[in-house]
Design a binder for these strands. Structure first.
Length: 453
RNA sequence: GUGAUUGUAGCUCAGUAGGUUAGAGCGCCUGAUUGUGGUUCAGGAGGUCGCCGGUUCGAACCCGGUCUUUCACCCCA
């Protein structure tokens, strides 16, 4: 019985046309990464759960796809836990592997594991899919590609600057208008410190991160709900509502944060980065946004986020500095900074705006019509030369009806069709037809290569 | 995980006061046109109406469950 084919929730198939578009994105991003001296690595789709668990918070643990152990895994599981139906504890007994949730944690693992083979500062990029057992919705998938660039083993702010240059380069190449938002965890810490709520920094940042979405009143409500005193919430107001140019914001912050050493350090860092960018004439708008917090709690310095200006979708790139990511794997004091391009969201943005250059989606340039065995052989010989000349070309595999073969060319948007019948073979030539204009000419292979190359 | 929402031909969608053989457009196949396509014309194939169960003499339509789609919350690329 035929079953209805389907793919898991939140995953997608990609047709050849869609792949051409996606590859255009990946190729563009990759070439920019390479230009800045980053080298590729790959890590396995699955990691040990011990590597993954506890790195993304409690919520993250739930969103990990776990892989069932092989063999008779139930026989080895603790009976008591099965009886209790305690999913969390039982999971650890029947599953020891999981699909990666992002590329940063596997990268940290990689750095620690290969610390003696790699040279620091280590600049790597990684373009691979990640999986999250989230409920899918707009711009959110259960399988999606991240394109990460990170540099570890360097504290220099030049790295932060470079990452923004990369963002600038990538989105210019893709023709997407974006706004880069930056913030600094140290400023957020300073603010929490000033209002006497240093230990509540996570709650505070999570709440003000929503300012854009839910408005100031709801943010304050949430803050109070998290047991932050009214007095502290009041003190927070002028900071959240900070406006003006980046410089004006920084000036205000310097005054507000003058009693917080961390806070001032953060301000100084941002200022340095912004100054670099100005000198380098980076034209993408970069805005200091104090409400930018980003969930990941391992960021310790700069925080970045990139939003597409012409399409309403979540952030399409995000990242920041993390001072001690490798610490959990036993390698201390290695600072890293990186960003991640969300390829699938970029793909959605490009699709909505139809930003693909025409030449990015061509495949075959020339099709040989198949008239029969002898003719096919003649065509194949010509094809060798044509392919050597770097032209994508193919022969229709069956001696099907002409209409069918021409239709095939139409569907694949093949620009030229070559016909080699009795006539052509006798003269050692080929009839070349331009599918757009309909014009035909009887020429040699060499002439043909010149025309269509 | 919570709350909504969707599901009819390959695709986009019609269709019900519950009543025999479920429709359209596009696409596909065949022919007009046995070396000339994208146009036209003629014909044809293709559906257990997401799945399971219930109500009913009778269900694509009503009810329940389940899966799926889309969206919001949480969280996030």
């Amino acid at each position: 019985m035929a079953q209805k084919p389907a793919i898991p929730k939140g995953t997608r198939d990609f047709t050849p046309i869609e792949m051409a578009k996606r590859n255009f994105i990946f190729d563009t991003i990759k070439s920019v990464f390479l230009k800045y001296g980053y080298q590729p690595i790959e890590t396995p789709a699955m990691e040990n759960l011990s590597t993954l668990m506890g790195k993304y918070g409690e919520e993250g643990d739930k969103l990990l796809f776990k892989i069932l152990n092989s063999g008779d895994f139930l026989a080895k599981a603790d009976e008591q836990m099965l009886v209790e139906k305690n999913s969390v504890k039982t999971t650890l007994q029947i599953s020891e592997k999981g699909l990666r949730y992002d590329l940063t944690v596997p990268f940290a693992r990689f750095v620690v594991q290969h610390q003696n083979e790699i040279t620091f500062p280590f600049k790597r990029y990684q373009i691979q899919p990640v999986w999250r057992a989230d409920r899918p919705q707009k711009g959110r998938y259960r399988e999606f590609y991240q394109c990460d660039v990170d540099v570890v083993g360097s504290n220099s702010l030049i790295n932060e600057v470079e990452l923004i240059q990369i963002v600038d380069d990538v989105y210019k190449a893709l023709n997407i208008n974006v706004l880069v938002k930056i913030n600094n965890r140290k400023i957020l810490s300073g603010i929490a410190e000033i209002i006497g709520q240093a230990e509540k920094i996570v709650d505070i940042t999570v709440a003000i991160d929503k300012l854009d979405k839910i408005g100031i009143d709801k943010v304050n409500e949430e803050l109070l709900q998290k047991d932050i005193p009214q007095e502290a919430v009041d003190k927070l107001q002028p900071i959240i509502n900070l406006s003006g140019t980046n410089q004006q914001k920084l000036d205000t912050l310097k005054t507000v944060l003058q009693k917080s050493a961390v806070g001032l350090k953060g301000v100084e860092e941002i200022e340095t980065v912004l100054n670099y960018l100005q000198t380098l004439n980076v034209s993408t708008a970069v805005e200091l946004d104090l409400t930018l917090a980003r969930g990941l709690n391992y960021y310790t310095g700069a925080i970045f986020e990139v939003k597409a200006l012409d399409v309403q979708i979540g952030s399409i790139t995000g990242g920041g500095r993390y001072d001690d990511l490798t610490g959990v794997f036993g390698l201390r004091d290695v600072s890293g900074v990186g960003i991640s391009f969300g390829a699938d969201r970029i793909y959605d943005v490009m699709n909505q705006l139809e930003l693909y250059p025409k030449e990015s989606i061509v495949s075959t340039r020339l099709l040989f019509v198949n008239f029969g065995e002898r003719e096919a052989l003649y065509s194949l010989q010509a094809l060798q030369k044509i392919r050597q000349a770097g032209i994508n070309a193919e022969l229709y595999p069956d001696a099907a009806k002409m209409a069918k073969q021409m239709n095939y060319a139409n569907k694949k948007e093949i620009a030229f069709v070559a016909m080699t019948g009795e006539n052509e073979m006798n003269q050692g030539k080929i009839t070349l037809k331009n599918m757009k204009s309909g014009e035909q000419q009887l020429i040699t292979v060499e002439e043909m290569i010149n025309i269509i190359a």
